[in-house]
């Protein structure tokens, strides 16, 4: 299949494969995204592997309570991602790989993310000035 040519070029694409809840890879990516966005630039994250589970609608907005402080809600990763997508609409994008999602039964994602087949990875890389690949899956 020929690569689809996108109309815009993003400043940065992060391909994130390292699983969440294991290292601080997602934390570092969110921090980097914040810094790029504060510089009025654009950044897109292609979420692979178990990162596809972070944006499932079923996870809701808040995590199960900290039993030491149940009155203080803690946002889910999905809520954090949605917050970035809303605050920086047009400059931040979160793509969920449909192959990884299917492999993990990660369905019903929040509306703000984009679903994309892994057959479009090359096109997505081509649509960024810089690709940062984070392995560790």
């Amino acid at each position: 299949m020929a690569a689809t040519v996108e109309r815009r070029t993003w400043d940065v694409l992060v391909v994130l494969t390292a699983p969440p809840h294991t290292t601080d890879a997602l934390t570092t990516v969110l921090r980097l995204a914040q810094a790029v966005l504060e510089r009025e630039r654009t950044i897109r994250v292609w979420a692979c592997g178990y990162n596809t589970m972070l944006t499932q609608s079923s996870l809701g907005e808040t995590k199960p309570a900290d039993l030491r402080d149940p009155a203080t809600p803690a946002p889910t990763a999905g809520a954090l991602i949605r917050g970035l997508l809303t605050a920086y609409k047009g400059r931040f994008s979160w793509i969920v790989c449909t192959a990884c999602s299917a492999e993990r039964g990660a369905r019903d994602h929040i509306a703000e993310v984009r679903l994309r087949s892994d057959a479009r990875l090359a096109a997505t890389v081509a649509a960024a000035h810089r690709t940062l690949y984070i392995g560790g899956a």
Partner: peptide, 19 residues
Amino acid sequence: GYRGSAEAQFFDALYGVEM
């Protein structure tokens, strides 16, 4: 330590031990 600060947040291994 530090197994997902943004996503796990307060729920680290020590929290598990406390609970």
